[in-house]
Simulated assay, not measured.
Amino acid sequence: MPSSLIIANSLISGEIFGSVTVMVIAIIATIAAFSSLGPMMLLQIGALGRQAVLQTYLIFAVFTERTISVLFMRNKNLVQSVSTREQMLALVMVNSTDSIVNINHAGLCLWSGGASLDLLGYSNQDIVGKNLNDVLSIENKNPDFIENFFNSSTEKLETVLAKPIFDPSRALNLSFRKFITDGIVSGAIITVNDITEESEKLAVAVEKSEKDPLTRLLNRYGFNEKIKSVLETQAENICISYLDIDHFKQINDTYGHEAGDRILTELARLMQATVPPPNIISRFGGDEFVIAIIANPTDAQNSLNTLIETISTTVFSLTDTVKAHITISCGYSFYKKGKPLDILIQEADSALYNAKQSGRNRVCNFVQSNSAT
C-alpha cells in the first residue's frame, strides 16, 4: 500500500479517522487472505504472494498500534485533565470559607462541600440526609419558602438571611439557584456565607442613626421608623404624647449643661421603667420627648399621669452635692385611621402648650386642651 495514499487519507480524514480506516482495510485484507487459502497455502503462492501477505500483516500491525496509541494518549490526556480539575475543585472546597449545599425539592441535603461544619454545625458527610429547615432558621415570613422557590417559574438567584440553629448569634446569607438537568429542575444549589461581621457593623450604624447618644432612647428618625411599623399593624388605641421638662433652661443656666445631661439621663431611665415596651419612647431633642403608648384612652392617660407623678416625687442629682425635684408637662392626642403622623405629633405639641399655660406639671388632651386633666 503506497505510503502517499496513507498520508493523503490521514490529511483528508484526520489522524484518528484515517488510521482507523487503514486498520479496517488491513483487517479485511487479512481475513480475505486466510479465509480462502489458510496459513499452509502461503508456501504455494510464491514470493510475490508472500510479500503481499507480509505487507498486509505489517500494515495491520503498524496502523493498529498507531490508532490504539493515539486513542490511548487522547484518553490519558482526558483523564489527566479531569483529575486535575477534580483536584482543583477539592482544593477550592477545602479552603473555602463558604458552604455549598445541594438540596432536593423536599429540602433534604444531598451533597455538601466547603465550611459546612463551621457555618451549619454539620460536617459535609453528616449533613447529607438532613432537612435544611432542621439545620437553619430561615428569616422569611413565608414558612413554605423552599416549596415556593421550587414551584416558582423564575430561574434567577434568590437570596435570604438565616441563622444556624446550633449558633443563633451568627448571621448567614443564603443564595438559592435551581439545579437543572435535561431541562428539569432536579434540585437547588445553595451557597452559604457568613455575614455576621457585616451584620454587626450594620447594626451599629443603624443604632447610631436611630439612637440618641446621651439617653440611648430613639431619636426622631428612629421613632418615625418604629411607629410606622406599629401603625401598619395597629389601627387603634395609639396615643402620641409630647413632653418636656419645666424650667429646664434655668437648670442649665444655673448648674451647667452637665447637670442638665444628668437629668436627661435619669429622666430617660424613669420613663423606660414607668412606660415599658411595647410603648415607644424617644428624645426629639433638648428636653423634648415623644412617647407612643399602645393602650386605650383611659389606660394611656393613667400611664401619663403616673409618669408625671413619679417624676415629680423623684430626687434628681444635679451635681455630686446638689439634688432637686423637677416636673414635666405633657400633651397627647389619639391616632385615628388615616391621620398623618406629623399631624398627630403637632396635636400633641399643641396640647403640651396648653399644659404649660395651665400651670405645668400636668397632662392635657388635645381634644380637651382648654382644660387641664
Rank of each mutant, 00 (worst) to 15 (best):
M1Q: 01
S3K: 14
S3V: 04
L5I: 13
L11G: 11
S13M: 13
G14C: 05
F17V: 13
T21H: 07
V22E: 08
A26M: 10
T30K: 06
S36L: 03
L37Y: 14
G38Q: 06
G38R: 00
P39C: 07
M41A: 15
Q44F: 15
I45C: 02
R50I: 15
L54A: 15
T56Q: 08
F60Y: 09
V62I: 13
V70A: 15
V70S: 13
N75L: 15
L78F: 08
S81H: 12
V82N: 11
S83N: 14
R85N: 12
L89K: 12
L89F: 08
A90G: 13
L91E: 15
V92A: 15
I100A: 13
V101R: 01
N102P: 00
I103W: 01
L110V: 14
G113D: 09
S116K: 12
L119P: 11
L120I: 07
N124I: 08
N124W: 01
I127Q: 01
K130H: 10
N131A: 05
L132Q: 00
N133Q: 09
D134H: 14
V135Y: 05
E139I: 12
N140Q: 07
F145E: 04
S152H: 11
S153E: 14
K156W: 06
L161W: 10
A162G: 04
S169C: 12
I180R: 03
T181S: 11
G183L: 11
I195L: 09
T196W: 05
E198Q: 15
E200G: 07
K201V: 08
L202C: 01
A205G: 05
E207F: 03
K208I: 14
L214T: 02
T215R: 05
R216I: 09
L218A: 03
N219I: 08
R220G: 00
R220W: 09
Y221K: 15
N224G: 06
K226S: 12
K228H: 09
S229C: 10
S241G: 02
Q250L: 15
Y255N: 06
G256I: 04
G256D: 09
D261K: 00
L264F: 04
T265A: 12
T265D: 10
T265F: 14
E266L: 06
L270N: 05
T274A: 07
T274F: 06
P276C: 04
I280T: 09
G286V: 07
G286P: 00
D287Q: 10
I294P: 07
I294T: 05
I294L: 09
L304C: 03
N305C: 10
T306H: 02
T306P: 02
I308D: 11
E309Y: 10
T313S: 15
T314L: 06
T314D: 07
S317L: 07
S317W: 07
L318W: 05
T321C: 12
T321F: 15
V322E: 13
A324L: 00
H325I: 04
S329M: 00
C330Q: 09
G331S: 04
S333E: 03
Y335E: 03
K336C: 14
G359A: 08
V363D: 00
V363Q: 08
C364R: 02
Q368E: 15
S369D: 01
A372S: 14
